[in-house]
Nucleic acid binder design. Sequence first.
DNA 1: ATGAAAGCGCTAACAT
DNA 2: ATGTTAGCGCTTTCAT
Lengths: 343, 343
Amino acid sequence: MTRQTASDRRRPATQEDVARAVGVSRTLVSFAFRGAPGVSQQTREAIFEAAARLGYRQNAAAADLASKSASAIGLYLLDIRNETYAEILTGIRDSLEDVRNRLVLSVAHSRGGTEQAGIESLIEARVGIVIGATLLDSDDHVRELSRSVPVVSVARRIEGVDSVYSDDRLGARAAMEHLLSLGHTRIAHFTGPSPFGYQDRELAYEQAMREAGLSPWVVVGDDYTQEAAERLALRLFETESRPTAVFAHNDQIALGIREAAYAKGLRVPEDLSLIGYDDSRLARLRGIDLTSVDLGALQLGRVAGAAALERLRAPHAPAVDARSEPRLVVRASTAPPRPGRRG
Amino acid sequence: MTRQTASDRRRPATQEDVARAVGVSRTLVSFAFRGAPGVSQQTREAIFEAAARLGYRQNAAAADLASKSASAIGLYLLDIRNETYAEILTGIRDSLEDVRNRLVLSVAHSRGGTEQAGIESLIEARVGIVIGATLLDSDDHVRELSRSVPVVSVARRIEGVDSVYSDDRLGARAAMEHLLSLGHTRIAHFTGPSPFGYQDRELAYEQAMREAGLSPWVVVGDDYTQEAAERLALRLFETESRPTAVFAHNDQIALGIREAAYAKGLRVPEDLSLIGYDDSRLARLRGIDLTSVDLGALQLGRVAGAAALERLRAPHAPAVDARSEPRLVVRASTAPPRPGRRG
DNA sequence: ATGAAAGCGCTAACAT
DNA sequence: ATGTTAGCGCTTTCAT
């Protein structure tokens, strides 16, 4: 289990070390590394040479402390197992590629509670901004938080806070129009427990049902995972009355329902039409072919990253409100209901 | 696009503020927050009360600076879109749940180059340790890096460096034995470009082939993604001679091959047997049913997280070498080759 | 139990 | 162009 002694670490070199090696003051070293003017070409080179030789690296924390600035970017994520968050994170990283900002990560705690603890750690890290995807607290709570540190909310609109999101009502409506136009009437909606921020899909679903003269049928899970949805769907499919179509809050939930359906001998789309949300890469796989609403997660992340940099630059600029349009991608998981169904 | 002015940020409270509010010295506040002995119950309470009222939060960077310690944990990831890394990250986070360490993230740059830049940013953040999954540099390179900062290598064994990994040779051998026992002889191996650290699967494949009197057939992609594998496989399947089975370096690659196969009218497993690696949740979906080698990514992450904490605690302890055993999970993507094949 | 003072590695006036 | 000095928010001796 164990093998050899870890090598001894050398003390990291400081600006002081570099300055002494070159024979100049610390100030010059500081200037050189920040590209500030006022350093002769000659000393500059000597400094870089010595720094490389000594293995000097800036201490970002000390620099932030001294300059009273905060260059780190905090990332708050609910669940990295959900591919969509990974996609958002990739987008954020893309727009931060050329920048030197550190990324401080905080992932929601698995077991309930508020997200206070996770955010707290970001504040203690003195990040200059928090990019949150996805915050589950109330709008007021997030606004309150944003008085301590600027927040960029991804995939959720919060009044007065930088928000980068996709129009969920539009996406949900497109999904429902698709199902209704196929002739479905018994359409259920599977969603998660959050009372905040992520209800637009559900609200649009309910509205679409009512406008079509149908009564809404919402199933609320413990969380937004495949597993929770599968458990719920298994129970639902045991009853006599089951829906002919389900509009799921996200692809994970849709896949959970799909597993449950197959387990009960129901085929998709013959016995059950299924629409997800996110258009993750999963949805595109042959053999899955899930009809889904594409919210452009990668692009959302990119815009959020750019917005974060911009906020760092201009703390007092007006709050960004970047809404994008989702797109329904029809695949093979949706079809007209069977005329002589037993349900 | 814009709406209202972001609220003004208040200056974060410092220990000084709290001390003044209570009427004690900064030292006591510092003691109280670190739970150090030597603070009377009464003052301790008064301090916490005032701190809560003022919204005081420790400045972790300043604390690290003053104490010459480094409590932050650096995370270096190759690609968070690969579900397996997300799983590893989840495991790491699990074992860090109760600890207050910050997580500083660095994701590999999309476009080539060494991973120097990414690691650099972790060093500038003065993390106390770097958990790397997956490092693509040479063993020597990583060892050199580990002289600046302790490293925990996940999913790859590096002599002299804390390593938490699964026995790839074992996993690859199990996969090959499965294919060989089904009667396959034309078995290809799809892998990625890295010359370092991730060759055990390939080596075990080659050895198994040779031992069976067959000649190895290795296809090397530009990277380890589904897309790269798909492109490569499309070309391969256009030729007359194609394999009857493929052992892929990971599930992503396997799925890329699968897409290509279907695009060319080949069915899995009738026309092509397919084995992946990682046993990601993708593999388990009905309609995918990919035979795969489970390397226990979640557990790998958990052990790595624990190892990191332990290394922080005992810098001079012997290097950890935690090897685990993978497990072949047979599903529906593998079957005997068809007797009268056209290949 | 409490406080004063030095210093962590750095930046930012303000010198020269 | 270069150097001096005073902090940034915190921990840590060392006094009291």
